[in-house]
Each structure stands twice: as C-alpha cells, then as structure tokens.
Nucleic acid binder design. Structure first.
Lengths: 137, 137
DNA sequence: GACATACTTTAGAACTATTATAAACTAGGA
DNA sequence: TCCTAGTTTATAATAGTTCTAAAGTATGTC
C-alpha cells in the first residue's frame, strides 16, 4: 500500500493523517499476512522501526479509531496476560490460541465449517461467530 | 446437593471446608442450570443471600481454587466490561454472548457440530475449542 | 502564506480488575 | 486443649486501559 493510499484510507475514515497515525497505519497495513498484536507489542515495534515518538495514549486512541473505522479487529479473547489483541485481518475468521506463547494464529473462515448451529435466543440475532481453538504442546 | 456432599467435594479436592468456601460452593453448585457470573456479581449475590462476610480476595482465591480443582470453568471471553466470567458448567460447551447485557448463555456441545476443522500447527495439539456467538438485538 | 479553529497528541493522573502481602484467624490432627 | 499449616482479611501493589487538560498541528479561509 503506497503512502497516498494510506493517506486516503485515513482521510476517508475522517481521520486526519497525523504523523503518528500515518506511521501506525503504514506499520499495520503495509503487509501481506495478517498481523496480531497487543498495544505493548505494537509500541515496541514502533519504537524500533520508526523515529517518531508515540505516547501510550496515542496508540490506544489510534487503535480505537482504526477499529471504529473498520480497519482493525479486536479479538474477544481473554488470554492469560489479560491484554487486548488486535488483528489486521478484518474479514470473518477464527483463531488458534497458544497459551504457552500467548500467540494467536489465524484460521481462515473456510477452514471451519459447521454442520449444525443453534439459533439465536428470542429477540436476538447473531452478529458474528468466533471460534478459538486452544493449543497445547 | 446436600451439605455433606459439598463438604466431600471440598475435602476431596484438598480444600478445607471453611465457612466461606462452603457458602460459595453451596451457592454455586446447588443448582440445576448452569450459572455464569463475574467476581463482582457473585459478591453481590453472596452479600444478599448469606450473612457471612467475604473479602474480595477470598472470592478470588476460592474461585481459583475451585477452578483448579475442576469444579468451575473460566470463559476466555474478553467482554466489554473486561471482567473474567466463570461458568459452573464444566463440560465442553459453547456460549452466546450478548454484548448489550454482557450476558453469557450456554450452548450445549451437541448444538454445534463441525463439518470441517483445521489441524493444529506443527508440534501443537488441540486442547479444546470454544465457540462464542455474539448476539445483537 | 498567515490565521483561526477544531482535531490530536501528550504526560501524567485516575480508574478498574486482579494479585500480593503479612497479620489475624481457624480446621483438624496429636 | 494445643499446635500448625492452611485460610481469610484489609490493604497495598500491580497492570492494562482510559481520562484530563494543556500544548501542538492539520486544514479551510482569506
């Protein structure tokens, strides 16, 4: 993704392309494979790969803004470290979770298919469905 | 479940049947249907239903002890309230999650069956599989 | 390009869930 | 009854996240 399209991505989401947002967006979205991270790990990567300074609050703000704009997913997993996981893969999909390493691995939507699914309780609708496959060694 | 069997349950798990543990065990395990709760909600229920005092740390200690003994499950869901959910249903099963109310609803294991599942990454084995179906109104 | 203004970033404080601490208490065996 | 290891307790500590309000910046207007 070229810089201009990063800028467009931000602008079209109503987000001013500030230095911090552009760096974070470049880091997160200029990649082929899906990327899983926590705020902490992202902060470390950014510190290593850029010369820009990022306040912790900015990382949080930016991730929430990206999530709201639909550019990021939050994984609703409570791992043992109790941090929020984000995922650059915004399509419907699932995860392996390795509690030894606290790592997530994507599972494509088409790698899990269902034979039988319950219907939603009365008055409710199914928004989406997340499968977590917990791993051990 | 009679009081004696509560005591046995505790003793056979290597847990001394203290007043607090017995009260919590009675509250949690003397019921037909599965029960989902957070530490906070359990504390409120206990305050209402018993005259025993429970320090917050005791509730945490007890729940962890029960979990370790296999009498309780922790649901690996990070809901919007960011609290840990416990479940008296210790069999393999799944959940609906209603983010409006932050409530969990059990889904029996046999209500979800798979057509296709991925295999575990190299060197890893599947420990278990949790499905969360997110609901909306 | 300079200006005004609304949007952003920032450092640090505040907040919340959870865990650790260390002193007081208690179950259960001798 | 006494001893001791296991428990409970209040409180402090910790960790992830959000809030605050002051300083900085992108962008439209002239």
């Amino acid at each position: 993704m070229k810089k201009t399209s990063i800028l467009n991505k931000l602008r079209s989401s109503g987000l001013r392309p500030t230095k911090q947002r552009v760096e974070i967006a470049k880091f997160l979205f200029n990649r082929d494979k899906t990327f899983h991270f926590t705020v902490e790990s992202l902060g470390k990567h950014l510190a290593k790969k850029t010369t820009t300074k990022f306040a912790l609050a900015t990382i949080y703000n930016t991730l929430h803004a990206f999530k709201k704009a639909g550019h990021l997913n939050e994984v609703h997993l409570r791992g043992k470290n109790n941090t929020t996981y984000f995922d650059t893969n915004i399509s419907n999909h699932h995860h392996f979770y390795d509690s030894e390493t606290s790592e997530l691995i994507d599972i494509n939507d088409n790698e899990i298919t269902f034979d039988k699914l319950p219907k939603a309780p009365n008055g409710k609708t199914i928004k989406n469905l997340e499968v977590i496959i917990n791993l051990k060694n």
